[in-house]
């Protein structure tokens, strides 16, 4: 690969890392800080991606929209559209135990995917929505800067939230729910707020993703890409730690990308399908991480309580 090719690849690579980092931060808000086990990330990712696709693409005859609206309107739409969905999911599942919440959220993600597969009037079905443009006539390089800006914004947001009294309540709920309830905190409300905020970050990731690849179809929102990799990133990076979440996105995407090379080195006759082999590798890798270092690369560091010395 020559220099130009290498740098183009680096831009492509970092863009996806950035998008995943935003989703990992969203998941950290739900799982790392509040202890909500959401494995329906792909669903919120899809809502974000489809919303901006419908809002910003050129008008098409076979479906509703597109409305040819500007990029930022589309992105705002992604986040806003996610709020009622996350609110509904959060309300229904508010009192569920961790493992039930997991089952419920994965069901919701599957239903959202089924919805986009089947409701062609809105989503153009399995053919997907093409022609989602990057904003301001930017190329990949310029768009990377936009992604980085949003990563920074998202990080700032969750970090402020984590250090705020609100974030302390969330951790208190995660670590000792009865005691927090006894302290007079409305647990269901705090949970719902965290769930919606986290889901909106996932939708933001979906919106940015749609403009990055220029095309959305239900294929992209299978649990593997949408949900599983994000979980691997957060667990590998260190759940509860926002820097860890972002580091996890970088490391795991690096590994995921390099499995492509490893898979390329092994004769196809031996492994049948290259993409299947990559999934196999990442699955085994995650299990190794879980068995050997369940706290991740950067374990959670708790911010000091008021008056506490560091």
């Amino acid at each position: 690969m020559d220099m130009a090719g290498l740098s183009a690849y680096a831009v492509f690579f970092l863009s996806l890392v950035g998008i995943y980092a935003i989703m990992a931060l969203g998941l950290n808000m739900q799982w790392g800080m509040t202890g909500q086990f959401n494995i329906g990330i792909a669903g919120f990712f899809a809502v974000g991606a489809y919303t901006t696709a419908i809002l910003t693409s050129a008008p098409a005859e076979s479906r509703v929209g597109g409305f040819d609206l500007p990029f930022l309107v589309g992105l705002a739409g992604s986040v806003i559209a996610c709020i009622p969905v996350a609110w509904l999911v959060g309300r229904i599942t508010a009192r569920l135990r961790t493992d039930y919440l997991a089952i419920a959220t994965i069901g919701i993600a599957e239903i959202i995917r089924l919805f986009f597969v089947n409701e062609s009037w809105l989503s153009n079905g399995t053919r997907g929505i093409p022609g989602i443009e990057k904003p301001f006539g930017l190329g990949n390089n310029g768009y990377l800067l936009i992604i980085i800006a949003f990563v920074a914004l998202a990080w700032l947001l969750v970090e402020i939230a984590r250090r705020s009294p609100w974030g302390r309540v969330l951790r208190a709920i995660r670590d000792n729910e009865p005691a927090t309830a006894a302290a007079g905190k409305d647990i269901a409300r705090f949970r719902l707020q965290a769930f919606i905020t986290g889901s909106c970050l996932m939708a933001l990731g979906g919106g940015l993703y749609a403009h990055f690849v220029g095309f959305v179809s239900p294929e992209a929102f299978r649990p593997l890409y949408g949900t599983f990799l994000v979980w691997v990133m957060l667990i590998a990076g260190g759940s509860g730690n926002n820097l860890g979440a972002m580091l996890g996105a970088l490391v795991v995407w690096l590994i995921w990308s390099s499995t492509e090379m490893i898979a390329g080195l092994v004769p196809t006759a031996l492994i049948g399908s290259e993409s299947a082999f990559r999934v196999f590798l990442i699955g085994v890798l995650l299990q190794i991480i879980l068995v050997s270092r369940p706290q991740g690369l950067l374990p959670e560091k708790r911010p000091p309580m008021p008056g506490e010395k560091r």
Binding site: I235, G283, L286
Partner: peptide, 10 residues
């Protein structure tokens, strides 16, 4: 639970 998710993929 996450490990079982990984098992599923593997």
């Amino acid at each position: 639970l996450i490990a079982s998710f990984a098992t599923a993929l593997v």
